[in-house]
């Protein structure tokens, strides 16, 4: 069976290790170029199912700003990013919200929660936006 070579740039930290992988029969034979253990984990995961943290915004009523920044509390499969974006599209929240509040549990069956990433106070009534 031929050896298949693959190249990855680790995105776990700003160093961005360039990692070379050799595969035989879909099994990893060697992983080289990673400065830490996380790089190896990253590559193994990339081979199985690439996972990413999603950061985006949700529409917000009653606050100073129109959008609340949010994130998934853990990486979700890359192929589901657009599906999650779609689910979040039609949601509208009401202020106030605290940072780390769970906005949605188990988004789109990924097992990840959507968390607020900042505090958003309620804007005093009558104040124009």
């Amino acid at each position: 069976m031929d050896i298949e070579k693959k190249h990855f740039t680790c995105v776990i930290c700003p160093i961005g290790c360039e990692i070379d992988v050799e595969l035989q029969d879909s099994n990893v034979v060697s992983i080289e170029g990673s400065k830490c253990a996380k790089g190896k984990e990253f590559v193994s995961q990339e081979l199985k199912e690439p996972m990413r943290i999603l950061t985006t915004t949700i529409r917000m009523k009653g606050a100073k700003w129109a959008m609340l920044p949010v994130r998934t509390d853990k990486p979700i499969p890359k192929r589901l990013l657009f599906m999650v974006m779609k689910e979040l599209q039609n949601i509208e929240l009401k202020a106030p919200v605290q940072m780390s509040d769970v906005i949605i549990r188990d988004i789109a069956g990924t097992g990840a929660n959507i968390l607020a990433t900042r505090n958003m106070k309620k804007e005093r009534e009558g104040k124009s936006v």
Partner: peptide
């Protein structure tokens, strides 16, 4: 930081992968 909603902030300083608003907060 308030508009940099992506993650990757503070990895070297705090060893935590914050978003911009979280890091600011």
């Amino acid at each position: 930081l308030k508009q940099c909603i992506h993650n990757g902030f503070g990895l070297e300083q705090f060893k935590i992968d914050y978003t911009g608003p979280e890091y600011a907060e």
